[in-house]
């Protein structure tokens, strides 16, 4: 899911940085104005950034590709606006420590995964309604499923639209579609996981849900 260095044209990388900088500013501003407990939400964002950093190492081989959990939906429903900056920080450390992703593609990767978290959160809020475990299970599943799906769609679109002329376009498009298909089981798994976490939090700590 992480696009490494050297795979995207310079102008796309620059646009990714510009877009993620603007979105980070908006998210931080919104989080400060909407949260009654800014220190508490930053504390939670740090823990979730750590979780995001670690889960990318849990590798699931689905030949010919390899997938890993993203947790975009869970980040969205637990952090709200701060999910984007938290994912950006996690991606930075993944690139810096292990070369997972890349520095030139950091902005694009942040927009795809962080943007997916924000969209998943919006979907969760739309579906959640007022209360009830059934509603939380449905909206939690939708958020987890959509978090992976939105990220895959974003990454796949960027990759297909920027295929270099020297690459066999048909083969690369097929590879991207295979990559997208391989993420379907992951999207289902993250949907179930997010739904269960959301229901658990509704029972024991409902104020953690954004």
């Amino acid at each position: 899911m992480h696009i490494p260095d050297g795979m995207l044209p310079g102008e796309i990388c620059a646009a990714g940085y510009a877009g993620s900088a603007v979105l980070t500013w908006i998210c931080i501003k919104k989080a400060r104005s909407s949260s009654e407990d800014p220190a508490g939400i930053v504390s939670r964002a740090s823990v979730m950034a750590a979780a995001f950093f670690v889960v990318s190492w849990i590798h699931i081989p689905l030949p010919p590709v390899s997938v890993h959990p993203i947790l975009a939906g869970l980040m969205g429903i637990l952090l709200g606006w701060l999910s984007f900056p938290a994912i950006l920080v996690g991606l930075f450390f993944q690139a810096a420590m292990f070369g997972h992703g890349g520095f030139t593609t950091l902005g694009v990767n942040a927009l795809s995964m962080g943007g997916a978290a924000l969209l998943a959160w919006a979907l969760y809020r739309m579906l959640r309604g007022k209360s009830g475990e059934r509603a939380i299970l449905i909206s939690g599943f939708a958020a987890g499923f959509a978090g992976v799906s939105f990220a895959v769609i974003a990454v796949g679109t960027v990759l297909i639209l920027t295929i270099p002329a020297y690459i066999n376009t048909g083969a690369e498009v097929s590879a991207v579609l295979a990559m997208a298909a391989a993420h379907l089981p992951l999207a289902l798994a993250e949907g179930i996981f997010t739904a269960l976490v959301a229901r658990f939090l509704l029972r024991v700590k409902p104020d953690m849900l954004m």
């Binding site: 508490g40 750590a50 670690v54 420590m97």
Partner: peptide, 30 residues
Amino acid sequence: GKFTTLQIVLMSACVVWGFIGTAFFFASRR
């Protein structure tokens, strides 16, 4: 780029501890 498992665990633990330390800092401010 080829790290041993021990190196990866230690490097990750350091980063995770940084995140947790940040969380502690803001939790104490609360």
